[in-house]
């Protein structure tokens, strides 16, 4: 049985995330992939506004903090300046699928050779749990106190399905991190995204169905169950697109 310890690409800092928030798991998975591919020294992370905006304290690679929604554009600038470096963004759902919709769609359709880690937890965590573009119909949030009503607030965005229509996308895969098996699957998907980037094969996005126990008003364990019972039926796991674009 192999030893298990914190990957080198994570700093020693204690993360500020709430207890049971799965951001921590996904951070570790990204770091493990950086370790295993031995690319920490060649990686640049772009972390925009949202709960993970302070990820620069957690990743040991170079990190750029970015404005809300703009990470794919910032990452494009980094990648065009350094085509041989590994560039990834780490974005939440409000960031990627609301204020940053244009940036993600166009980075994807350009086939920008970057890897996007997309955290979908159906809410704006940092600002205290408002309706996100991914909030499920009926879901109660601070700004949908009677539940999201599609007649009023419209429908949630299914990001992987949407982006998989674009020719520039090499990988669009939805995973989750609710048990050891799904965590291992998520890591494989993240690794795959970075491998696509290594081989200059185009844009990759890994959507991770995640929890926000604090703003969902649940215990961390109940939150894992909600992902299974409510989120996965609306956001099915799986590979939506896979194949080199160039």
């Amino acid at each position: 049985m192999p030893d298990f310890k914190k990957p080198h690409a994570l700093t020693d800092a204690v993360m500020h995330y709430c207890p049971g928030c799965t951001h921590g798991i996904v951070h570790r998975l990204v770091a493990e992939v950086l370790d295993e591919m031995d690319i920490e020294g060649d990686a640049i992370g772009v972390c925009p506004v949202g709960c993970s905006v302070m990820a620069y304290d957690y990743f040991n690679c170079d990190v750029i903090e970015a404005a809300h929604g703009r990470a794919p554009a910032v990452a494009t600038g980094v990648k065009r300046a350094n085509p041989d470096k590994f560039v990834f963004t780490y974005q939440g759902d409000g960031d990627l699928a609301a204020i940053g919709t244009a940036e993600i769609v166009h980075a994807a359709t350009r086939g920008e050779n970057i890897t996007v880690i997309f955290i979908n937890n159906t809410t704006y965590g940092m600002t205290g749990g408002q309706m996100a573009p991914t909030t499920l119909p009926g879901q109660i949030t601070q700004t949908t106190p009677y539940g999201r009503n599609p007649d009023v607030e419209g429908f949630p965005v299914r990001v992987c399905e949407m982006l998989s229509q674009l020719s520039g996308v090499a990988l669009a895969q939805r995973v989750t991190v609710i048990d050891p098996k799904s965590v291992n699957e998520a890591k494989k998907a993240i690794r795959k995204g970075f491998e696509f980037q290594k081989n200059k094969q185009g844009f990759s996005i890994i959507e991770v169905l995640s929890t926000c126990p604090t703003n969902w008003g649940m215990t961390p364990i109940e939150a894992l169950q909600r992902v299974k019972d409510e989120m996965i039926p609306y956001y099915p796991l799986g590979v939506y697109k896979e194949g080199a674009i160039r």
Binding site: I64, A73, V74, T76, V78, A81, N82, A102, E103
Partner: peptide, 21 residues
């Protein structure tokens, strides 16, 4: 690179400038 918007263009500059270029 022709950006998708003025906002994207300046953020590409932000990323590129971060790289020291």
């Amino acid at each position: 690179l022709q950006a998708e918007s003025e906002v994207a263009a300046i953020n590409m500059v932000y990323g590129c400038a971060s790289s020291g270029i």
